[in-house]
Amino acid sequence: MASSSPEKGYALLEALNLEVHYGGIAAVKGVSFAVEEGELVCLIGANGAGKTSTLKALARMIPSSGEIHYRKERLDRQPSHLLIGKGMALVPEGRGIFARLTVAENLAMGAYHRNDKDGIAADLAHVYTLLPRLKERAEQVAGTLSGGEQQMLAIGRALMGRPQLLLLDEPSMGLAPLMVEKVFEVIRAVAAEGVTIFLVEQNARLALQTCSRGYVMESGRITLADTSDKLLADPRVRAAYLGE
């Protein structure tokens, strides 16, 4: 299933030689990777390795060089606000919920680009089934939610766009272990529904246990790419990321 040098037009999402610079500093130094339809792939690495910059570049939130292909379309010159309409959603680092809007308004914004009233209502019902806490708190201002609930809201909001590809940036960040487990249950459930997932995580063990395949990123470069089982067994990964 995995291919370290993906063929063009084959993958759902493909990055070629992606580079991100902040001023004169290179945060991402020419990475290439691919995510195929229906896959659950993770990108692991230490703090500051360039994982978030990679995701932000994919979502066109920051400028980058190199190519980004999505469904055979070049994304690297597109503005950020057109991506959700093409089926790509990002749950940003730190959740990025609209704290002053209610939970229901946050979810409505997730479907901003859509006009199919019935479809939106159906997806809202589906999100509320998947994340019942959101339904209980629908009229509450989102800033009053707990960290875990805010992460659930960020995921639910992304699902309201009915994405085919979901990019997740550190969904476990700042959450208690029990909550992390719940968030990852939701991620697995979303993947089971056929949504392709590209997951960025510092929690390497959990990420690799959840995904079928992974990339390891170190100071702006991808240094390892393999199936999760092999990465979990790799002595370098075990030493650097699994604390063994």
Binding site: S80, H81, I84, A89, P92, F98, A99, R100, R157
Partner: peptide
């Protein structure tokens, strides 16, 4: 509240 996240929602700033 957050112009870049609004962009992710498909909102054209």
């Amino acid at each position: 509240e957050n112009v870049s996240v609004a962009g992710l929602m498909g909102i054209d700033a």
